[in-house]
Design a protein around this nucleic acid. Structure first.
Lengths: 212, 212
DNA sequence: AAGAAAACAGCACGTTCGTGTTATTGTATT
DNA sequence: AATACAATAACACGAACGTGCTGTTTTCTT
């Protein structure tokens, strides 16, 4: 069980002052302790498997193996471990790379100590703590890519509604039942949808809808 | 300029008690005020354009036009406005819909008043405040697609090949022609694929294949 | 008030798909 | 040698889908 009265944390950070600072913070905070402090990804990958913490605070900018790659490797062998990335950069590229690699949270370095402890608690409760500036980058990535479809934008509200259900795998009959309209009407709408999207089957329509 | 000493907020919420509660909270908090309180999306869409706030707090579950659609319509005409969704549900579907629609933040209803005020400040500073449970859903959506399916991994090489073509919208006949096998053989493979993936239609199979 | 667009609904016909059943051949695994 | 699985193929039947055609009602725009 990882559930204990004291939360164990390890730190991976090449800056000596920061690494030691966090160690002191964690050891000085009731309910937390630091069981490992590593100055490189290589060192962390070697020593963490035999000294597994509840949470890892990981700098994203490490010399040699990057923090992102370190996360990938750690998560591969220890998928249950929680990792919070800490960075000076609010570069969207790096954020997404880290999240895809399996990081559970993402904080900027100037996050105050109290917020860091809160984030550690949070991540163990299943949350994904992140600075709101980071969250913004993530949110933007939702608004840009999915807005690809100029074609689906030409659809009426009702047509989009029906396409959304179609994209969940529902049959015409089921779509009709969901929307309280007849199967024939669903067919009618789908006819228009297919025309507007220039497709010939439901699979093609769904692929366009999903931006694939 | 939207930058003023007092932040103006409007509320869209059908629950009378909650709507009035937020109004009282905002008016009673230094630096904030409530300039509009609407009980439906229809009312909000009609009145907000002539009484534009800095930030809108919007319930996602509204009768009639949904909060998500309301966001779409508002953002279309007032792209600069900041909108924070407030919901009881932590349903990933709705979260993504709202974020795609252009919502800037996402809080659960049980968020304490102080956090709501903090979120309003935050969103005006360019952040995207969201409960960490919500953030988790968002983060997972980054991790799922790349980490494909365990289920599709159980398919044989030939089956994966056929599924890939299926996911491009090809008909059985076309798949057969691509692979130089009969349509009947394609059907045979698809039969096994559907069994292994526990699906009942090509659309469902494609959705699983795409990790959706 | 007139016209256009959207939503609704029905019928018909042919195609595509999902599934039950059966069978041959080749390749591993044991 | 025996068993298991993958790949190939065929037949049949009903369900689901795509499309051509027609029609009414409501809603929005002009």
């Amino acid at each position: 069980m990882t559930e204990q009265s004291t939360i164990t944390v390890s730190v991976v950070e090449d800056n000596d002052a920061l690494r030691e600072g966090w160690g002191v913070l964690l050891k000085g905070s009731p309910g937390f302790t630091c069981i490992g402090a590593y100055s490189s990804a290589e060192e962390a990958l070697e020593k963490i498997p035999s000294n597994i913490p509840d949470v890892i605070l990981m700098d994203i900018n490490l010399p040699g193996i990057s923090g992102v790659d370190c996360v990938k490797k750690l998560k591969k062998n220890l998928p249950a471990i929680s990792i919070i990335m800490i960075t000076v950069h609010e570069d969207s590229e790096q954020v997404f790379e880290a999240l895809k690699a399996g990081a559970n949270g993402y904080l900027v370095k100037r996050t105050p100590p109290a917020k860091i402890l809160e984030a550690i608690d949070d991540v163990l409760k299943g949350g994904s703590p992140m600075s709101s500036q980071i969250a913004r980058l993530v949110v933007q990535s939702f608004q840009n890519p999915p807005a690809i479809n100029d074609e689906t934008a030409a659809l009426t509200t009702r047509e989009q509604e029906i396409l959304a259900l179609l994209a969940k795998g529902f049959r015409y009959k089921e779509i009709g039942e969901s929307l309280f309209i007849s199967t024939e009407t669903v067919r009618g709408h789908l006819r228009h949808i297919y025309e507007k999207l220039s497709v010939r089957s439901r699979t093609e329509a769904v692929l366009k809808y999903l931006g694939k």
